[in-house]
Amino acid sequence: MALSREEVEHIAELAKLALTEEEKTLYAEQLSAILDYFRKLQEVDTSGIPPTATVLPIHNVFRPDEPGDPMPRELLLQNAPAQADGCFQVQMILEFE
């Protein structure tokens, strides 16, 4: 199945990836080839087969809810591209009139 350029742009927007024009052309072609190959999966009869999300025979893991020592704030912020007043600094996400 061929992915159109518009579909590639839509997926890139969902994934928040800025792509160049060349990348859009390349990915439309490559992802189409990969998805085409994946059609092989449709041959398999999976009626009545449950999906596997994890192989572990574990369902819930509990621990006592006890406070511990948190990581110091300076350590947490040391990799931040921008920080202010002991917080991660970001751009405005809400617009005001």
């Binding site: 994934a15 990836l17 792509l19 992802l31 990969i34």
Partner: peptide, 19 residues
């Protein structure tokens, strides 16, 4: 950030997975 920070294969797999 993501468009420039990730290389071609990572972007390809993110696109494939997102799809």
């Amino acid at each position: 950030t993501r468009g420039h920070g990730f290389g071609p294969e990572v972007k390809r797999r993110i696109m494939l997975g997102t799809y």
